[in-house]
Amino acid sequence: MDEGRPIFQQIAERVENDILSGALVEEGQVPSTNEFAMFYRINPATAGKGVNLLVEQGILYKRRGIGMFVAAGARERITARRREQFVLEYVAPMLAEAASLGIAPGQLTQLIDTQLIESQLTEKETR
């Protein structure tokens, strides 16, 4: 767990990560609040808060007496939101750091292109 942020948010994020990675499939059942609590060694109420957050966002839904399931279209919703966050969390800081290092915008796009090509090459090699 990361010290800086409320645990319930981190729990929600981990569930989202699992949905993105395919570990949790749409319409599939997710572990119970108590199972989350035991697994992450956190207070069950906190785990419940994290799960509730996802219910409010329409990522998860409850089936009375059965449990919690991943909503249809959850993956898409998470991806859309994370794309917005990506700009804030990665692109903006990168631009700031680039500016402080004196990297010109043109050089920056060039760096990104080079990096992309390299990673594609290594991907091919490993296949």
Partner: peptide
């Protein structure tokens, strides 16, 4: 609450 305390200082 513990959650409101977490991250309440930097």
């Amino acid at each position: 609450s513990a959650d409101s305390l977490r991250g309440s200082a930097s």
